[in-house]
Design a protein around this nucleic acid. Structure first.
Lengths: 163, 163
DNA sequence: CTAATTCCTCAAGTTAACTTCACTACAAGA
DNA sequence: TCTTGTAGTGAAGTTAACTTGAGGAATTAG
């Protein structure tokens, strides 16, 4: 507490290098996140970025969320719910956490459902699309009106025997 | 059973257009899958692709697997375990299914674990990387020896108060 | 036999999430 | 002050999984 440990932490704010060390993110990634609106560092009069301590938390949240499978867009949306005028409190973060937890629950149960049908559906004949529960009903069902599609092969009455 | 319903199904094999209709995949996607070694149609003397009925099943498997989050590379690897000399049997498919089911189980339990720690870790101070269980320990832990990283912000004794 | 389809190939474009590069500009310290 | 070391910018490259487009050949319908 004499003069200062490293200027990079001092009056103006935290440098990108410091943030990079603390989060493990490459400076290029951090700049990218700024472009994506995930962090909003201010600039010195000479144009260098200066971050706040709270940005470390933001960026850590990004890393964690990504490892949970969320996209940058989703993460930005979540972060946008944090207050802009004051440093987010524990309660602010918990609200985000709760929302993500909900989404995760949904994904997990969705995956679980699909997994449970995997055996039966792949193992069996699984002839018609409309019967195949594994075929995601939302994604691409009835994309065209070309007639019935048969997932997993062989329609019942197409050509008698297999080719 | 007179002359033929559609030439595209007849002697030489199934055309890409037919496969496209049946699976819902764009021809461009099917060609891409060929490049990626997921299907191996033979060619007519004039160079057109001819598929087998079993390819519909292969491609359906690809679609299902993708919706479960598997990459083309993983899917190709799985499909490579199918016999090349004969049409895969139900048992062949079940073996693949079993292996994918296992991987899914792993992913689900991993996600579940992370989700359970989400609340606590984001909500709390979660100061040091080494204490933060949410921070994927395999991915990027100790990338540099630059000293301890602090996830989710503020290290205990860095600068007294918040910036 | 024509005309309309369908198919082929190859190159380039697309989105996400970044990295790498080339150059320039500031900042920190001996 | 002079020299590193960091920063900054903008453009282009990277991987995955495809799509789009250009230009040409086969097939199928009438």
């Amino acid at each position: 507490m004499k003069t200062t440990p490293k200027l990079r932490l001092r009056p103006t704010g935290l440098t990108i290098g410091f943030i990079s060390e603390r989060t493990g993110l490459a400076p290029s990634a951090i700049r990218y996140y700024e472009e994506e609106g995930i962090v909003h560092p201010h600039r010195t009069d000479t144009g260098q970025r200066r971050f706040e301590r709270a940005d470390i938390r933001r960026l850590s949240f990004v890393m964690i969320s990504q490892s949970l499978g969320f996209s940058i867009a989703e993460i930005r949306t979540a972060l946008d719910s944090l207050p802009a005028n004051r440093t987010p409190t524990k309660a602010d973060w918990q609200a985000i956490s709760e929302s993500f937890r909900q989404k995760l629950d949904d994904r997990i149960s969705q995956m679980t459902k699909l997994r449970e049908q995997l055996d039966g559906c792949i193992g069996c004949g699984c002839l018609s699309l409309s019967n195949c529960k594994l075929y995601n009903p939302d994604d691409r069902a009835r994309t065209r009106g070309t007639g019935p599609r048969y997932l997993m092969g062989d329609s019942p009455s197409d050509l008698g025997q297999d080719a």
